[in-house]
Write a protein that binds this DNA or RNA. Structure first.
Lengths: 212, 212, 212, 212
DNA sequence: GATGAATGAGGTTTCATTCAT
DNA sequence: GATGAATGAAACCTCATTCAT
């Protein structure tokens, strides 16, 4: 399960666990500020208030730290999406058109909130999908979880859906929403976020529920 | 106009122009194969069949080459989108529902073709938007062009549109399409491309033209 | 206070302090032997028995080492001038003509001794005043100290002086003496040092004390 | 006579002579602006409006150009000293004390004028005495000429002199004057030039002519 | 002759990693 | 365990010089 190799120490005492976690936090900050490639192990150690050598007794290099940071990030994202929505999306009752609209709205806003956690870290993570196989494997796994959740939600309301191909639909609505929302969070835009989010909700609603 | 600084050689002899372009091509290949951070100036020179010093007389470092590669890439993308569509999208006659569907179809397929040019390069370019201000400025400029083209197209058929906020609509349909299509091109997927593309076309069609 | 930048390591362990000082000594030797421009960082490290990287963890490049070497040199010069004179020049009692002659003599000989410390380093230092602003600032500061000392000495015996303009006098006698003595130390000369020094003493004596 | 080696072209046509001289002028400017070590052959060629290769067909590298620049500089200095003095110093009639004072005054002022020609170049030249044997040889030769002229002048008026050791006197008065005057020209000073020059004249006068 | 493109040795600098204390 | 000093391979970059056109 752990990617860290043999030589990396697995802390059992609480001090060691504390130290390991301070390394991960320091690394997270630096990856946000300066990017993965702009950060080096010595800096991470310094930011964590540790000697360089100490870093290496916990991690073989900065990659396993990054993987750990990614895991923490996705854990947080998932919690946010599930808890921030005003209603329990997965279990809400869908009776009428307005309920569907509300569901879309809640989902989009929950995703928007989730992307406020750390857009800069998100950017580093998604960029690294491309350049590192280990990162790719990890993120693909996390994305599969999200995709399954979306598919499950769609299946649950399949009676209402205007689309046939649920798997493909899950794919395009999740990718689209993620990308549109990430851009809002990441850059200054000329169009206010609210207008973009409204249109995104409209797009998702009409696509999923309006029969032609 | 050019981002390259004062010290960069501006070739006057045809041999120099040839050399500069061979550096750009070699760099493009390597950026595709190994990514921007995985490539160094020495390798680029070697791939172009040149001494290291020659590289440095044309470019201060690998960044300006990358900027040049980006410019070339967007030039190619634009040409492909405009020329690969089976019909002249910008000037096609829109009379009935099927014409709108056809327009969406042609656009999506043209974009799909465009993304076949070099998905790996595309990934490097979009990843770098986050880590380098110069790259960001350049890409934002190119993206603005695309966005304007989409807006212009929507304005031309505004009588048919179901959406009110054309600017926001342009933003979300372009971002969504780009992202969905890029993923198809970039990774192996369990769902066949055709199914995803069909759903994408459906989503765009319903969002843009189906009045609720 | 220190000119070295942020990245330069500030040694805390005694081994580090030792290492830093061995770099400075090695650099001093090489600057004497081959001049500032003829010496490079790799050589300095090698002479100090260190890896190249070690040099760079203590100094950003050879300039700050040179500044350190200069500081040490001036410290040594000052000590020599103050301690090598046969009498305590600054506090000697001046009663008669012979005392003035003796004072001049002692000063000139102390300066001559001081310039035996390292004429080659002295030459490098004075040459660099012209080409590097940081070196210029540092040396100007050191020279101001010497000039102030001379001025103080002249003020103390102002009743005996034949000159009115003490500041200007300090300037010319220090510059002249330094230059004449430096040349003696630096090059082989046809005229024996003793003859030159005697004339220099005569010049200073007549200029300062002989009323016309 | 020439230091340039075999491969350097000796121009015979007037165009070639013109080109060679434009290289020397360009080099002189750059040595003044950026120092010898801060200037390279390519820049010299560019400043002269020539291709790099052309530089190398006239000079093997920048050193022989520097030697040529030095020769020109000393030629100019000598002319200035001889022609700028208000009277013909070498042949003026010395009858009374005031004539001696005037002679000193004229000499000092002529030297001051001479040092206005190019203090920055002067600084580069004197600095290079130390680091390059060829430059040392050349400059020592030029300095010997100056020294001989001073000795000749002193011999001519030996009846009036208070000093016995003419050779040593020539040495110290020339070195002192050169150094003091060079500093005036080279740096901004707190004491006005006029005060320093007056004291310098006083020092020379009393040393040379006032019998104790 | 003149041009400017190309060379590559050699200097400069970084940083992941090891190791003595 | 923790420290931070030391390492050295590998990157970066420059420039004196050569050479094809």
């Amino acid at each position: 399960m752990d990617i860290e190799q043999s030589k990396a120490r697995v802390p059992v005492q609480s001090r060691g666990i504390q130290t390991k976690s301070s390394i991960i936090n320091a690394a997270k900050e630096l990856f946000e500020e300066k990017g993965y490639h702009g950060t080096n192990s010595k800096e991470i150690a310094a930011r964590a208030g540790l000697a360089t050598g100490t870093f290496y007794s916990y991690f073989n290099d900065k990659k396993p730290v990054f993987l750990e940071v990614i895991r923490n990030y996705y854990r947080e994202i998932t919690e946010t999406v599930l808890s921030d929505a005003a209603v329990d999306i997965l279990n809400m009752e869908i009776r009428k058109k307005e309920d569907l609209k509300k569901m879309i709205h809640e989902l989009v806003r929950a995703l928007y909130n989730a992307h406020s956690i750390s857009p800069k870290l998100h950017r580093e993570i998604t960029a690294m999908i491309y350049s590192d196989p280990e990162v790719e494997t990890l993120i693909k796994g996390e994305e599969k979880n999200s995709m399954n959740a979306v598919r499950a939600l769609l299946s649950k309301i399949s009676g209402r859906l205007a689309v046939k191909d649920i798997d493909a639909a899950a794919e395009i609505i999740l990718r689209s929403s993620e990308e549109v929302i990430h851009r809002l969070r990441m850059f200054e835009n000329t169009i206010p976020d609210e207008r973009i989010l409204n249109e995104l909700e409209d797009m998702l609603y009409r696509y999923l529920f309006v029969k032609v």
